[in-house]
């Protein structure tokens, strides 16, 4: 008996809980050379901005133990090309789109939300809050819970009410639960976590940062325990808020770990770079793992780690 893989994220039901994470799958076109893009739960698109964006200078990426540091700088063609070229392509292949949006202020996020929620085929919106806030010396919106809440409110109130809006959180903030709470209070329908972790690699030959931007985002299996911990903590505080868990998912067992921590869906990120078939492989492995345990519905394991006695109390 193959388990029922359907999962619910706010008002939206997906066929299965394995998604491709933002920035690690484009709009699905490249990965579709390796598998049927309609087979995965959804594609979370690379963050869309209002205008074309050239991104950061190269080198943009450096390999680190079980991960990488990257600073791409949101290179992309802008919302117009996205809506006319990329989104229709994904629709034509039967793929489901979670559109990630990124901006430099409330007005830009508002405008993006309006344009995107008016388009056909948008299942959900994910707000990338790890964008530099020009009004705060380039600190990220997610660094300040009040700023993050303003952005969430702006996007939520300009998005069609039947489209769930998820806020994507970075782990390295002063108080993650407070940030999550501020987003929920600003009417986010759910949370995506985690974004990459800020870090740096230094080239041992030149003794200069290996990535041109200096600091970058660390991703890959190296950050998985950080991500699982964040999902667990936030699910403890807000058990009714759906979470898309991500951070170094490489196998079906990794995906199961996130579900048990409290995520209702799991996004596959950097591992797509090393294994372009990763999403469908992980989906298959997850199905097998659930079947082996005799689980009939994937929803049964969501938050299981909290029910199975949860974390041992401090002694």
């Amino acid at each position: 008996m193959s388990p029922d893989m359907r999962t619910r994220l706010g008002r939206v039901e997906l066929d299965n809980p394995v998604l491709a994470a933002s920035g690690c799958a484009g709009s699905g076109r490249e990965l579709a050379q390796f598998f049927d893009i309609a087979r995965i739960g959804a594609v979370v698109t690379k963050s869309v901005m209002l205008e074309p964006h050239a991104g950061r200078p190269a080198p943009r990426m450096a390999e680190t133990p079980s991960g990488m540091v990257s600073a791409i700088g949101l290179q992309g063609p802008g919302v117009e090309v996205f809506l006319q070229r990329d989104l229709p392509w994904l629709m034509s292949r039967g793929g489901r789109a979670v559109v990630s949006v990124a901006g430099s202020g409330v007005a830009e996020y508002q405008e993006l939300a309006r344009r995107i929620s008016g388009a056909e085929g948008v299942e959900m919106v994910e707000i990338n809050l790890s964008c530099p806030n020009p009004a705060a010396q380039g600190r990220h919106f997610a660094d300040d819970a009040a700023e993050a809440a303003r952005i969430v409110h702006a996007v939520r109130s300009n998005t069609r009410s039947d489209i769930p809006v998820f806020a994507k959180l970075a782990p390295d903030v002063p108080d993650l639960t407070a940030l999550a709470g501020a987003c929920v209070e600003a009417h986010a329908d759910g949370l995506s976590m985690i974004n990459s972790v800020r870090g740096m690699a230094i080239d041992p030959r030149t003794l200069r940062p290996a990535v041109a931007g200096g600091m970058g985002g660390v991703s890959g299996p190296a950050i998985r325990p950080i991500a699982v911990g964040c999902v667990y903590e936030v699910h403890t505080a807000f058990p009714d808020v759906p979470i898309i868990g991500m951070g170094g998912v490489r196998t079906g067992a990794d995906a199961l770990e996130f579900l048990a921590a409290g995520a209702s869906a799991v996004a596959v990120g950097s591992v797509n770079f090393s294994d372009p078939s990763a999403c469908v492989r992980i989906l298959r492995e997850l199905e097998e793992a659930l079947a082996e345990r005799g689980v009939s519905r994937v929803a049964e394991v969501v938050g299981a780690a909290h029910r199975n006695g949860g974390a041992a109390p401090n002694r």
Binding site: C24, E30, L31, G55, A58, R60, S70, F273
Partner: peptide, 12 residues
């Protein structure tokens, strides 16, 4: 990094 066009790290 990826060779397939998704990571955007090899741009010139």
């Amino acid at each position: 990094a990826c060779g397939t066009g998704i990571c955007m790290s090899c741009v010139i």
